[in-house]
Design a protein around this nucleic acid. Structure first.
Length: 647
RNA sequence: GCCAAUGUAGCUCAGAGGUAGAGCACUUCCUUGGUAAGGAAGAGGUCAGGGGUUCAAUUCCCCUCAUUGGCUCCA
């Protein structure tokens, strides 16, 4: 038997006999490690820890602390669930059962049986029972014909379909207990690693994501190696529920919806509207510094406008239907985008290269007929306001302009404390060229500009194919919210196509006509979505400069109500937002209520304070800060705001 | 748009074939209290909307609308 060389991540090189398994190696390092090894990364590929090594390898042992370890465990959990389901519901058919970011799911065809959320507990119990048996996951390879025969006999047309599409040759199967599944693997050594199980949801899902095909029952779940970790996970879900912007929006009086107004059409309440206005003026100020100029365009435009832009051909069917003028029968559309209007603004007068870059900014409200099932709080609505701008520039200016926009977006994220985000370069889907308009040459130029700009700014990016807009590639900023979900917020797009379609031109230094390039950009994305994500991000405790009410003045008793009103006028003169809680309640009650409504500061006003001309200050979440002069309190607050706005 | 669940007071929710209940919020009164819930009384609902079954429907059935969780989609 020949020797093989195994290199561990710390650079350690060890020699073993061929056929050694990663699990053996773990055992040699320490039995504690061996008990925790879920899988192994062999030359970069994740494999079963019990699969023998046959040549020299770079080896990394994966535990629960590694993403690969978690994925393997969850994937194995999907098998465990399938086994439990097959025992409980004989004759059911299986689609696919992968691991996902937070757990796993399996798509199942229950036939005539109606599986409901009430049945989940029963399945969990069965899974725990099977897990305790420490069933091993056995890998075996069989031929394609054999595999087809197996599933044809079993009557599982989904697996038959999957296998038929595989390349000829051997196919790997995994066997756990009495359950056998077509599977590439890898898997954990045995089901005993799965100590805590929670099946989280039941939902319909189309077979292979195709809405024309049968809908299967998808069961979601998550598992952990320790009961404690499951508890923590459930706590995190609770926390996410508390942070849900739909709940907080209601509680804080930010926005509402009305059946009568229509679904997906948010109504901003005074506090929400003021908060949004503050965000808008914050951005306007930053934009003014960066040379943007404001424009305003109407909510509708002639259908012809969107035929020119290409939006009508692409989205006309899925939009609100055209509005007709009563006599002439002209057709107008609710605007789904601001860019066509801005192109017309560009065209309103002849442009010289000296006019460029021209940066037209507008908080433009647009309307899109989103599918009813897609609507969700403020994050997905049918009428929303984009913090839109279109930058028209020369080819030479493009990269610099693009970089300046990135700087602006990063500045905004910094001020609003979004540190956890991904910059995603969204390119064309190479397999579906018909989805896009414009020439290959234009697309390549645009893609190159984005990639070079991000490289020059040394940004960490991920490239995702198929996520581009139909007219051009994008740089999207995805931030993470309380539940770890990703939301797309800001977006920057390079566009050579609309300038072509609108035949935009400027006169160059050479006295010839040239076509400008366009950058679409929206740092917030939409005001609605941004406020939603921000609300969840800060759990309703908005930064001091944004929050609807900054200070609550709490008189100790009714006797001091007048003093309290005077103080509130005084604070208003200092440009602070204050309210007076003049209810005939005890101070403890007032503190509790204002604490719960997340007011950043409380000022307590009683005999002592009035006598000495002081205020007693309480900070949300921190408590008593002692008493101070009003002027000192005002500078305290202003300092905090200043620090927040200049991170 | 598709599948499923849900829709009862401002909010959170209970309830049941015989025309509705709790807690909080609200109003009034009492209390004027020093750092996270003082007390009492009161008001508030076409039980999402529309049909049907029934002597009787908020409850059972159908349709519509909305919400939620997924799927698909996202200029």
């Amino acid at each position: 038997m020949s020797n093989i060389q195994v290199t561990l991540p710390n650079g350690d090189v060890r020699k073993y006999a061929e056929g050694v398994t990663p699990l053996d190696i773990a055992q040699e390092i320490s039995s504690g490690l061996a008990r925790n090894v879920l899988a192994a990364e062999v030359n970069g590929e994740i494999r079963d820890a019990m699969r023998p090594l046959s040549s020299d390898t770079d080896l990394k042992l994966l535990t629960w602390n590694d993403r690969g370890g978690k994925s393997t465990m969850w994937h194995s959990s999907a098998h465990l669930m399938a086994e439990a389901l097959e025992i409980l519901y004989p004759g059911i058919k299986f689609g696919i059962g992968p691991d996902i970011d937070n757990g796993f799911y399996y798509d199942v065809d229950f036939g005539d049986h109606q599986f409901s959320a009430d049945d989940l507990e029963k399945v969990e119990q069965k899974m725990l029972e099977l897990a305790r048996q420490k069933q091993e996951y056995h890998r075996k390879s069989i031929s394609k014909e054999e595999a087809l025969k197996y599933y044809t006999a079993k009557g599982d047309e989904y697996k038959v379909e999957l296998i038929s599409e595989l390349e000829d040759g051997t196919i790997s199967f995994y066997e756990t207990g009495h359950f056998t599944d077509l599977c590439r693997g890898p898997h954990i050594p045995n089901t005993g690693f799965i100590k805590a199980i929670k099946l989280t949801a039941v939902a319909g899902a189309y077979w292979r994501g195709d809405e024309k095909r049968k809908q299967l029952t998808r069961i979601y779940g998550i598992t952990f190696p320790k009961k404690k970790e499951l508890d923590q996970y459930l706590e995190m879900l609770e926390e996410a529920k508390k942070r849900d912007h739909r709940k907080l929006g209601k509680e804080l009086g930010l926005f509402t919806f009305s059946e009568k107004v229509g679904s997906g059409l948010p109504l901003w309440l005074p506090k929400g509207a003021e908060l949004r206005e503050r965000l808008e003026s914050f951005l306007k100020k930053a934009q003014k510094k960066s040379g943007y100029v404001p424009v305003i365009s109407p909510h509708i435009g002639q259908k012809e406008l969107y035929i020119t832009s290409g939006h009508y051909a692409k989205y006309g069917e899925d939009s609100f239907q055209p509005i007709h003028t009563p006599h002439e029968g002209e057709e107008f559309l609710l605007k789904p985008m601001n860019c066509p209007h801005h192109c017309e603004i560009f065209k309103s007068s002849p442009k010289s290269y000296k006019d460029l870059p021209l940066r037209l900014a507008e908080f433009g409200t647009v309307y899109r007929y989103e599918q009813s099932g897609e609507l969700h709080g403020l994050t997905r609505v049918r009428g929303f306001t984009q913090d839109d701008a279109h930058l028209f520039c020369t080819n030479d200016q493009l990269k610099d302009e693009f970089k300046k926009v990135i700087e602006l977006v990063l500045h905004i994220f910094k001020v609003l404390d979004f540190h956890d985000f991904t910059a995603q370069i969204s390119l064309r889907d190479p397999d579906d060229p018909d989805k896009y308009i414009g020439s290959d040459e234009n697309w390549s130029k645009a893609e190159k500009a984005i990639i070079e700009a991000t490289e020059e700014m040394k940004m960490k990016t991920v490239i995702v194919y198929g996520e581009a807009a139909f007219y051009g590639p994008k740089l999207d900023f995805m931030v993470h919210d309380a539940i770890g979900r990703e939301w797309q917020l800001g977006t920057i797009q390079v566009d050579y196509n609309l300038p072509d379609r609108f035949e935009l031109e400027y006169t160059g230094a050479d006295n010839k006509k040239h076509r400008p390039v366009m950058i679409h950009r929206a740092p917030f994305g939409s005001m609605e979505r941004f406020v939603a994500v921000l609300t969840e991000h800060c759990a309703g405790r908005f930064p001091l400069w944004l929050t609807p009410e900054q200070v609550a003045i709490l008189p100790i008793s009714d006797k001091f109500n007048d003093h309290a009103s005077e103080l509130s006028y005084l604070l208003e003169n200092y440009d602070l937002r204050a309210l007076v809680d003049d209810r005939s309640e005890k101070i403890g009650r007032k503190i509790r209520d204002n604490e719960m409504s997340k007011i950043p500061y409380m000022l307590i006003l009683g005999e002592q304070e009035v006598k000495k001309g002081l205020v007693s200050v309480r900070k949300h979440g921190e408590g008593d800060l002692g008493s101070m002069k009003v002027e000192d309190f005002v500078s305290l607050i202003n300092k905090e705001i200043e620090d927040l706005l200049r991170p």
